[in-house]
Design a protein around this nucleic acid. Sequence first.
DNA 1: CTCAGTGCAAAGGATTTGCATGCCG
DNA 2: CGGCATGCAAATCCTTTGCACTGAG
Lengths: 149, 149
Amino acid sequence: MADVDFDLDQEVADLLRRGDQRYTTGRRRLVAALQAGEGPLTITQILEEDASLAQSSVYRNLTILEEVGAVTRIVTRDDFARYELAEHLTEHHHHLICTTCGDVADFSLTSATETSLDRALRRAAEEAGFAAEAHRLDLLGVCADCRAA
Amino acid sequence: MADVDFDLDQEVADLLRRGDQRYTTGRRRLVAALQAGEGPLTITQILEEDASLAQSSVYRNLTILEEVGAVTRIVTRDDFARYELAEHLTEHHHHLICTTCGDVADFSLTSATETSLDRALRRAAEEAGFAAEAHRLDLLGVCADCRAA
DNA sequence: CTCAGTGCAAAGGATTTGCATGCCG
DNA sequence: CGGCATGCAAATCCTTTGCACTGAG
C-alpha cells in the first residue's frame, strides 16, 4: 500500500509539474481524500473527509487537477458533481449509480467484454465521423444499502 | 412519419393520463420540440426550437413528463441538463458526447453487442448486490463539426 | 365554475470569482 | 523577495418557486 501511495503521489506530482502547477499541501490532501473514497466523491464528501480544506480551494484545485489529467469530474443525476482520480492513476472501471440515494460505486467488466465493447464503439464512432476519446458505462439501479432499507 | 407522430402523441397522452396530468398545448409543443431535435436538448435549445414556450413552464413540464416516464433527463459535463424522449417512445440508443462543444448525438450498437453487454452487466450487478434498472453508455470525443473547425 | 397550468419575476443553491493575505520556490 | 495558492465572502447562473392570471374540462 505504501508503494501504491508513493507512485500515485509521484504521478500526480509529475502531471502537475508538466502543467506548471505546484503540488501544494492542499492538493496533496485533496488527492488523499479522493484516494480514501470508495468511489467518486462530491465536494461535500471531500470536505467531510478532510475538514481542513476550504470549499473554494477544493473547487479550484479539482479544476486544476482535472486540467492536468489527474482527476475526472463526473455528473450523475443529482445536483452534485463528483470527482475521482483519473483512470490512468487507478484502473479502468465503471459506475454503479444508485437511483435512490445517488451514491456511486465502482465496478469492472472482464477484459474480454471490454475488448469487444471497445471494438463495437470504435466502429460506431467511425460511422458518425466522431473522434472517440473514451467511453463511459454506467449501471443505474438500487444499491445494496438502499435495498435493505 | 404521420403515423409515428400520432403514436407518439397517443403514448404520451396515455402516460400523462395515467399520472393524472393533462396533455396541454404547452406540453404538446414541448414533445414536438424534443422530437424535432437530433438528440437530447438543453432548455435553451428547446426555447430556441419553439420561442412560444416560457422557460419556467418548460422546466416544470419536463419534470412532469419525466415523472410520468415520457422524458429522460441527462446530464453530461457542462452545466446544462438535457432532455430527450424516453427510450420506450423511441429506441434504445447511446450518446456521442462532444468534449469540445458539449453537444450530444445519438448512436446505436448492434443487437448482438447489446445482448452480450447486457449479460455482462447483469453479472456485475449481481456481484455487487445491486438491483440493475438500466445502463447508460456514452462515447466521449470530438464531433464531426468540431473536428472540421 | 373550478382547479390545474402558465408566465413573470424573485428566490434558491451549487459553483465561481475578487481580493487581501500567506507561503512556496 | 515575487508570484502563485488560499480562504473568506460576494457574485454568478442554471434551476426552482410564489403568485396572480388563464384556460381546459
